[in-house]
Design a protein around this nucleic acid. Structure first.
Lengths: 195, 195
DNA sequence: AATGCTCGGTAACAGGCGTTACGGTAACAT
DNA sequence: ATGTTACCGTAACGCCTGTTACCGAGCATT
């Protein structure tokens, strides 16, 4: 029988194919045919699973967010202290290995695609505001005696820095090796008094 | 007579049209026809000025870099102290008004396009490494007694932060107003001892 | 005045795109 | 065994893309 789980699994497989094409071929070549080829099927399956190309992209974008959230929640739960949780979560937002580098390229691709798509940019804003709130909560836990505006300013500085270095490292991995990114993160945390 | 200056001016006008389309319609709709429409001409002129679409994009990318460099060099020259120069240059890299926000969107578009284009990614790397060296030079001038690795780490943290907040603000201007970006920058400079 | 030349607009081409319609196959129900 | 239904590959459609070929208008030289 064709369980809904199967359909969901196919949708996830197609979303992974979207990420692969986005990371390896770029936004301009993100076509339905390219996604089908990356998923090892034909365009028929893709168009039977999703009503159109936009729905496919929106699903892939939301799934990327959901998976990212699960991953950072696991990191947060496994941390032994508020400061360790903050550092672990911020570290995950950088591009320190092939996997996170890939995610950063995909993230950039979706952001560029969102310029022309109202629903995609709405998704980005919702997800990014949730990300920012998480950072603020982690900073507040790591520095319980700080006033709210200090928490907000420092959290913003930290997420902007990790987001930025992820983009830089994704575009030029040789120039931004993992140890430099980690050193940058530790130096920033220490400078803010969160080391 | 048809001066080379005229041709250069046309090339610049077309490059500005590329930026406009990229900022307002996104990478996926960055077609030769859209650029021609934005420039107020036909595709005939575009294809007589550039051998193909790629050459048009490469020219627009390089011109964006050149103009950015001239602007920050002027800011640097006008600054009254090394620390003021550092802050002014970093500030220009954020997205604090409609103009710089536009540039940030264009920058993101070119970066996304570079995923699939070797020459475009080479350009990005050259330009970004020059940008990074500028930041390192400015940090070294602002903190003359720092060792080289401290200069490099702090400069990386600063350019990553400004680049990152520019992307965040470009995608969600309402959530990242100018005063928050400025407050973030000042807090970071103060934390690093560069206030 | 005639002629060559540069310029840029028009129209057409082949190819690739998203999307739709159709057909065949396999599993299930009766 | 046979009808039914779900599934998905195939093929086609119309549209839009980058690119090319062509053509006429203006200008300079002779």
């Amino acid at each position: 029988m064709s369980l809904p789980a199967d359909r969901a699994a196919q949708g996830e497989a197609l979303s992974r194919a979207v990420w692969d094409v986005l990371a390896q071929q770029g936004l301009e070549k993100l076509t339905v045919r390219a996604v089908a080829a990356a998923a090892g099927c034909t365009t028929g399956l893709v168009m039977h699973r999703f009503p159109n190309r936009r729905a496919l992209l929106l699903h892939a974008r939301q799934l990327l967010h959901d998976i990212t959230r699960e991953r950072v929640e696991a990191l947060e739960a496994a941390a032994t202290s508020p400061r360790a949780a903050l550092r672990a979560v911020l570290r995950e937002g950088m591009a320190t290995d092939p996997e996170t580098t890939n995610w950063s390229i995909v993230w950039l691709g979706f952001l560029a695609a969102a310029v022309a798509d109202a629903e995609l940019i709405d998704m980005h804003r919702r997800n990014n505001r949730a990300w920012r709130q998480r950072a603020e909560r982690l900073v507040a836990a790591a520095a319980p005696d700080w006033p709210a505006d200090r928490v907000g300013t420092v959290a913003l500085g930290l997420i902007a820095m990790t987001e930025g270095v992820a983009a830089l490292a994704a575009a030029d991995p040789a120039a931004y090796p993992a140890d430099q990114q980690e050193g940058m993160l530790d130096a920033a945390l220490a400078a803010y008094g969160l080391g």
